[in-house]
Design a protein around this nucleic acid. Structure first.
Length: 255
DNA sequence: ATGGCTTGAGTGTCAAGA
């Protein structure tokens, strides 16, 4: 089974690139974040033509998440149970005997902002809910844009980023608590090149200079982690014309 | 130098992303 995650930063703009990527890689499921469109504008027909059905939770302008799958998804649930959030950031579904959770963790803007507090509150609710989801689902994968670079090796210039949003200790603690629920960061199950990143700033030629962060992750519950054969970042789409600022992350699981 | 790009909204120019 091949599963993937990609923050597309507008599905409207990136739709041709998403279709091309699906054609090339044929994942069983692709989790998308930052759709930036309402459900009424979701390009269901175009994705169907590419061979994928979709479960989605959109909103105007901001956020929005989807799970695309070759086999139709079952038991689709939006949001975090027990956490009232007007921002569309989570969607879950069963695909091929695996429970998939697609998440777009808040950015936080800066550590002294209200959005940072929202991010930490959101992560606390997410963590409590994932503990329940782990207990409920034998095969669980949580894919998405976590907006957290877990360690200094996930940051192009740790000194410059020290204490900033995306790397601050409270955020990293929150990420570690997610892992300690019983997940593995699939990317770190394998030998990886140094300076592997999933996001590069649009400005200052960030991608060409590989000034990036690794903030998009595929977390696997124990039974999926034990059967994970690979995890890699596909930097190719970041070199497209009008690219998303994020690259897809792909995991292969022997299920 | 707190900028730099990109998107969506909406037709000015700003919020938000990371």
């Amino acid at each position: 089974m091949r599963i993937a995650t990609w923050n597309v930063n507008s599905l409207k703009v990136r739709l041709p690139q998403v279709v091309a990527w699906l054609d090339k890689h044929r994942p069983d499921a692709l989790c998308l974040q930052e759709l930036k469109l309402e459900d009424a504008s979701f390009p269901r027909a175009e994705l169907q033509a590419a061979g994928y059905s979709a479960a989605f939770s959109g909103q105007k302008t901001y956020n929005g998440v989807a799970i695309l799958s070759r086999e139709p998804a079952a038991n689709v649930v939006s949001g975090i149970a027990g956490f009232d959030d007007p921002q569309r950031r989570v969607i879950s579904a069963d695909v091929g005997g695996v429970r998939l959770i697609c998440a777009y963790v808040p950015n936080g803007q800066s550590v002294d902002s209200e959005k940072y507090q929202y991010k930490l509150n959101w992560l606390a609710a997410f963590s409590a809910w994932l503990a329940q989801e782990l207990a409920a689902h034998h095969r669980l994968a949580v894919l998405g844009d976590y907006n957290i670079a877990p360690e200094d090796r996930d940051v192009h210039d740790p000194k410059a980023w020290e204490g900033q949003v995306l790397v601050s200790p409270p955020e990293r603690d929150a990420f570690r608590r997610l892992i300690e629920l019983g997940f593995r960061d699939s990317f770190r199950l394998f030998e990886q090149r140094e300076k592997s990143f999933t996001w590069w700033d649009y400005r200052m030629n960030g991608f060409k200079r590989n000034l990036g962060l690794r903030i998009d992750h595929i977390l696997l519950g124990a039974s999926l982690a034990a059967n994970c054969a690979s995890c890699s970042i596909d930097v190719e789409p970041r070199g497209n014309e009008r690219p998303s600022d994020h690259a897809p992350v792909v995991a292969e699981i022997a299920v």
